[in-house]
């Protein structure tokens, strides 16, 4: 089952203080868009872990937890949108 976590104000980002962090640009150079994995029917879905709100709790959800069940994974532009 999804594991509950305590909500906080901020999540850590970036690298250690005083050290040069990798810039977006250098990462994009080494990863051209053409090589992005594409979703294909008949092939396994990419696994992921994501924070979620479920029944009054904040939980972490891994797609792999749902192996053995049918899953409908929906993306949408934003909360409080109308469509």
């Amino acid at each position: 089952m999804p594991e509950e976590f305590k909500p906080g104000c901020a999540r850590p980002t970036g690298g250690p203080v005083g050290e040069t962090a990798k810039t977006e640009d250098t990462r994009q150079e080494t990863k051209p868009k053409e090589t992005r994995p594409m979703i294909q029917v008949g092939k396994k879905a990419p696994d992921f872990s994501a924070p979620a709100y479920l029944n009054g709790k904040f939980v972490n959800v891994n797609l792999s937890e749902y192996l053995g069940k049918w899953v409908v994974l929906c993306f949408y532009p934003g909360d409080f949108t109308f469509v």
Partner: peptide, 25 residues
């Protein structure tokens, strides 16, 4: 990764994936 993120708008489009019990799309 799922090909539904719109870089320009900074939001996700209306993607819907049916995944079977083996994890296959």
């Amino acid at each position: 990764i799922y090909g539904v993120y719109d870089d320009d708008a900074g939001v996700e489009t209306r993607g819907r994936f049916i995944i079977d019990p083996d994890g296959v799309v």
